[in-house]
Design a protein around this nucleic acid. Structure first.
Lengths: 119, 119
DNA sequence: TAAACACTTTAACAAACATTAAACTGTTTA
DNA sequence: TAAACAGTTTAATGTTTGTTAAAGTGTTTA
């Protein structure tokens, strides 16, 4: 038996079997990494959690998280650049909210996962 | 009209309206941030993309990404600590694969989102 | 139009992170 | 049991990141 049977991934003793891969475009992978990276900070994730319950302006978020507006603004900038948020000015205030349903689902899914494997 | 009507989030001129929030446990938020943070690096995300198509051992991943085994091992460690992977030794080799369907869904969803907003 | 308000940007700095190279651990084969 | 193989860990280094404080922008009210 020169080489082992089917299974998608088995190392031959001397060389590896080629796998069939769905190769995504580099830009997509980079954008996705940027998205995850933006969510990968506990303070920014807390902002997302607040925005989960509806739009907020910067000063509301600052108040609710006991942080300076400067800090909130910088965190929102990172989330916004990762295309996770919508922005809308209303008079003096600028309201932020989750970009779309994809983002809502992504967050729900991740929180749910963390909750389940909470050994 | 002393204060404006319903909408979940409107700043009063002088003070903010309390919002009703679904507050998740701190541990859940922290675990979720760790998960996102692990995925928030393009090289680790590439590993996840490869594992999307089935289990791989460390040397296969090293070969397919043109990286040293040491580097792959360290990247896998971070993904594994974030509970994104399963690990199984078979003889000389250690096979890694995606932890569960949640993770598969999370990745699909994120890639899809990145693909859609690809203006 | 000047002052106040809401928010953003910049620069400086400390803390966290990714990579390299080398030493180390565990499993298998000779 | 010794050598080879597959993978992990450690320490050192340079880079990136998050925070603070201060200056700057745009909108609204007096």
């Amino acid at each position: 038996m020169p080489n082992s049977p089917i299974p998608g991934a088995v190392c031959d003793e001397t060389e590896h079997r080629p796998h069939t891969h769905i190769k995504r475009a580099d830009g997509i992978i980079q954008d996705t990494a940027t998205l995850f990276s933006a969510l990968g900070d506990i303070e920014r994730l807390r902002l997302m959690e607040l925005l989960f319950d509806g739009p907020h302006c910067v000063s509301e978020l600052a108040e609710e998280t006991q942080s300076s507006m400067s800090l909130i603004s910088q965190r929102l900038k990172i989330l916004n650049q990762a295309k996770l948020l919508k922005r809308e000015r209303k008079g003096k205030h600028i309201y932020y909210s989750l970009a779309d349903k994809h983002i809502v689902d992504l967050l729900s899914n991740a929180f749910e996962h963390a909750d389940e494997i909470d050994e």
